[in-house]
Design a protein around this nucleic acid. Structure first.
Length: 872
RNA sequence: GCGAGAGUGACGGAACCGGUAGACGUACGCGACUCAAAAUCGCGCGGCCGCGAGGCCAUGGGGGUUCGAGUCCCCCCUCUCGCACCA
């Protein structure tokens, strides 16, 4: 144990619990819905956790980051809202019910109780009085009210779309439950099945969701880029290809393309397997039907469809080229998506990589029509790579000689003039399907009546509660087969009717919880005044994996709530920070078993063996902690062994928070050692009381070591403040290590009264700067420095730097000759140019490098660098 | 497959706006303390050459711009995240 030999080491378990109690009793972190304290507001929020039962290191990282921000902003004089709750609906609870016979509610609330305890032991400065879980009827009832508001605003509607269907279990599968095209439990090949489902009209907001990204200047650039690409505005053309012979009632294929300029390079047309024309062909062509059935087995995941081998089926149909009248074959292709554009494309293999691979596979022609700069039309051919860049049009009739961009405009004009098509803006974003055929989610509050159609449940009847007595003994939706729950009277005609048995996607739950936190007890979804006060969230923190879906849905839902009169803001998150994953080495025994880190031991020679039995263990790669690889470290065990402050310090100290971090035993031990060092330092400072505060206005009265320490103290305030503002927490930690080293060094050099005063100032400053990271130890040591005080570091203002103490007495200037470093000189800051040049040229190694050479010119960056450019 | 990022000593990383690459921490080595070990404290620590002064090489690889490139531009490699029903 690292704390062996530390007899009077403080008992962190006792002390951490004690300070947590003090903060709690004094209500340090509670705020009112409408504070009225005149302070500026600051809303810090970390993505709320799914209650799996135990916190993991990702949570520790996420909530430590948020807590540092919350404590720092409080010290800067803000009234800080920092709430916590539970994203409590979802699949795992239902799986637990099926596997272990525990009711999802019982399982979920037990998990919440366990995780709440773990989070409390982390010492987070949360307002726990705002806690709720999305599975509380009080929460999901309000969500049902929001759904009804969207419904009456025309933002919710029903349409048919595809789900993954397990034909053996008779159940709908999530994408993650489809493994290699088969159901995870039954092993049966999945099928796409068409189902009527609820959708939210996110596409109505596509233009503004895209445009407003520019205003989110405190979001990571890459998240904004990803969202912009996801929304995917494209300009192109919609055009119609007449069929040479109509197929039943279908006489033409509608196609959307972003490359109308390549129309003369067409060598085929391709349909999505779900396209109506494909279905029509399948009716008379068993081969086509078989091909379509095979495509259905790919499931609904776009990644699965796009990574699958590109395959097609030639329907034998022909379409006419709109300008040339040539006939081109119509294929059904597994990579054409029904959800994007019109579900049909024209293939131009020379200028689209996917089309090229398809054409090569099936021996279709590849005529180039865009000539890259520097190529000659007579010799240019396409090899393995399609040409996607700019160029001049060739082999393209009336487009010949035009640049590609001009050709796009020209061909659209021509299509419009001849009534064959038109220019069109298209969006990649699709409407948000929110229906889930599952029990553990928010019931959709509508009733289906044979006579009246879809009838909303009256607001006074909300919440529509989940029945407690559902059965989980077989697959499928327990709500749908519940004996009585869905059978109701139609609110409109009083006749027999059925409740909607689908529940809402859990992304809906997390699309507005941050608004609910402003007034968690309100009888409406939000109290308008409280929401107006606190929103938007000033700093939102969570994993990069949510960069697109959750964040985009929350942005949309906030706009939808604004439009339906619940909120004033349109953008929910003014600032966003995305953290990296927590990783660890993985260990595998000779027989292939994965081993937990606590099951292995590192030998003196660096090899790793199993604790039980001493068998050799192979050390695998460092990767994201996961249960299947068993490379997890339990935060609960770490906190019990080292304390919350150690865990918090280490998780911030090692690397920048937006990158992946590796959890190592050595790193935790080092963090723990440093906290012991702080105690020894504080003890030695406390043992030597200071008569008076150091008079800042007369720094000359201090000895040089005292002046140096004071300068470093005040430089540290500036550096740590800047680092915290920039989320460079690892750099803040490095500056605190340095200040601790400087305190120890000052005493070694000189122990006069000035140094004692400077040390006292430095130590207290260090504690207050470190307090957001290690709040318990900061309180403990602050109390030791100020015996009898009732002040809490948690409530103290942030230290103020004194600019007069910061200025350096000398600067080091690098001297280069011909761009290579040859020496350094030390001068007072702001020395005049001739003096700097003279000193630089006189430096012995510089003088040697200059000998026999002519100085052509020099470059001088004040107080930083001199570069003599030489000839010869 | 498509979209978005990342890559710096043995390891995690630092480096404001293009201006001394390697702060701080870990590991390692040496020393002090100790009967001894641990803990603690001090010193050293990118590679190669050199007795030394010092020199050369070096920020995933290759090219370029510049007085000067980890930082800017082009090409390539590897890893990570997302792909709409995991949360």
């Amino acid at each position: 144990m690292p704390d062996a030999g530390q007899p009077q080491a403080y008992d962190f378990a006792e002390a951490e619990a004690r300070w947590q109690r003090v903060w709690d009793e004094r209500g340090c972190f509670r705020v009112a819905d409408l504070p009225g304290d005149g302070k500026p507001k600051y809303y810090v929020l970390e993505m709320f956790p799914y209650p799996s039962g135990k916190i993991h290191m990702g949570h520790v990282r996420n909530y430590t980051l948020g807590d540092v921000v919350a404590r720092y902003k409080r010290a800067r004089g803000f009234s800080v809202l920092h709430p916590m709750g539970w994203d409590a609906f979802g699949l795992p609870a239902e799986n637990a019910a099926r596997e272990r016979g525990v009711h999802p509610a019982e399982w979920t609330y037990a998990n919440i109780a366990a995780m709440r305890g773990e989070l409390r032991r982390m010492g987070l400065s949360l307002d726990w009085e705002r806690e709720f879980a999305t599975c509380d009827p009080a929460y999901y009832g309000q969500q049902q009210l929001l759904f009804l508001a969207l419904l009456s605003a025309g933002l919710a509607y029903r349409k048919e779309s595809f789900v993954n269907w397990d034909p053996v279990d008779g159940t709908v599968l999530a994408n993650e439950q489809v493994i290699d095209g088969r159901g995870w439990r039954s092993g049966a090949p999945v099928e796409k099945r068409r189902l009527a489902q609820w959708f939210l009209r996110i596409t109505d907001f596509a233009p503004e969701l895209l445009a407003a990204l520019d205003s989110l200047d405190r979001w990571p650039e890459r998240v904004r880029t990803m969202q912009a690409k996801w929304i995917g505005r494209s300009e192109g053309a919609r055009l119609s290809f007449p069929l040479a012979r109509p197929e039943g009632s279908i006489g033409a294929i509608e196609v959307y393309t972003t490359r109308p300029d390549t129309l003369f390079g067409m060598s085929f047309a391709a349909l999505a397997p779900e396209h109506p024309l494909a279905a029509a062909v399948a009716l008379r062509d068993p081969e086509a039907a078989r091909f379509i059935a095979e495509c259905r087995r790919l499931g609904t995941s776009e990644a699965a469809i796009e990574t699958a081998e590109k395959r097609g089926y030639d329907t034998g149909l022909r379409v006419q080229h709109p300008f040339l009248g040539d006939e081109e074959p119509v294929w059904i292709a597994n990579f054409v998506l029904m959800e994007y554009g019109t579900g049909a494309i024209f293939g131009c293999p020379a200028h689209d990589q996917r089309d090229l691979e398809f054409a090569r596979k099936y021996g279709l022609p590849v005529p180039p029509v865009v000539l890259p700069p520097g190529e000659r039309a007579e010799t240019f051919t396409i090899g393995d790579a399609a040409w996607l860049g700019p160029g001049t049009m060739i082999h393209s009739d009336f487009l010949d000689g035009l640049e590609w961009e001009a050709a796009k405009r020209r061909v659209i004009e021509e299509l419009e003039a001849r009534g064959l098509g038109q220019g069109e803006v298209n969006w990649r974003l699709r409407d948000w399907g929110v229906s889930r055929q599952r029990y553990w989610g928010c019931p959709i509050p509508v009733i289906h009546c044979a006579g009246c159609g879809v009838v909303p449940v009256a607001e006074t009847e909300l919440p529509v509660r989940l029945p407690d007595d559902a059965e989980f003994d077989r697959p499928g939706n327990p709500l749908d087969r519940h004996p009585s729950w869905k059978h109701v009277r139609c609110p409109r005609c009083g006749g027999k009717a059925e409740r909607e048995t689908d529940t809402l996607d859990t992304f809906v739950d997390s699309a507005w919880y941050f608004s609910r936190f402003c007034s968690p007890a309100a009888v409406r979804p939000v109290d308008r005044a409280a929401a107006d006060h606190w929103l938007p969230v000033d700093q939102y923190i969570g994993g990069i994996e949510h960069a697109i879906l959750h964040l985009l849905y929350a942005r949309f839902f906030t706009r939808a709530m604004q439009k339906t009169g619940f909120l004033s803001v349109k953008e929910p998150f003014a600032g966003l920070f995305t953290q990296g994953m927590v990783t660890h080495e993985s260990y595998r025994a000779a027989d292939g078993r994965w081993l937990y880190p606590e099951e292995v031991e590192r030998q003196a020679d660096g090899s790793v063996v199993e604790r039980q039995g001493g068998m050799a263990v192979s050390v695998g790669r460092i990767e994201a902690m996961s249960k299947s690889r068993r490379n997890t470290v339990d935060p609960g065990a770490i906190i019990a062994r080292y304390g919350a402050d150690t865990a918090r310090w280490f998780i911030l100290s090692d690397n920048p928070p937006d990158r992946d971090m590796e959890w190592t035993e050595a790193g935790v031990a080092a963090a723990h050692r440093f906290l012991h060092r702080l105690q020894r330092l504080a003890g030695s400072v406390a043992d030597r009381p200071v008569e008076a505060r150091p008079p800042a206005e007369v720094p000359d009265l201090f000895s040089e070591p005292a002046r140096t320490l004071r300068r470093r103290t005040h430089q540290t305030i500036v550096a740590v403040t800047t680092a915290l503002e920039e989320f460079a927490f690892n750099s803040a930690v490095a500056r605190l290590y340095e200040l601790a080293g400087a305190i120890a060094e000052a005493e070694r050099r000189e122990s006069d009264a000035g140094v004692a005063a400077a040390r006292s100032e430095a130590m207290e400053t260090l504690l207050r700067l470190a307090a957001p990271v290690i709040p318990h130890l900061a309180e403990e040591l602050y109390a030791r420095l100020h015996p009898g005080t009732s002040a809490l570091v948690a409530l103290l203002p942030w230290p103020e730097p004194d600019p007069a103490l910061i200025a350096a007495e000398t600067v080091t200037i690098a001297v280069q000759v011909g761009g290579r470093l040859r020496g350094t000189i030390r001068l007072p800051p702001g020395a005049p140019e001739p003096e700097v040049l003279a000193a630089a040229a006189a430096e012995h190694n510089v003088a040697r490098a200059l000998a026999g050479r002519r100085i052509v010119r020099h470059i001088l960056v004040p107080d930083r660098i001199v570069n003599f450019v030489v000839a010869g």
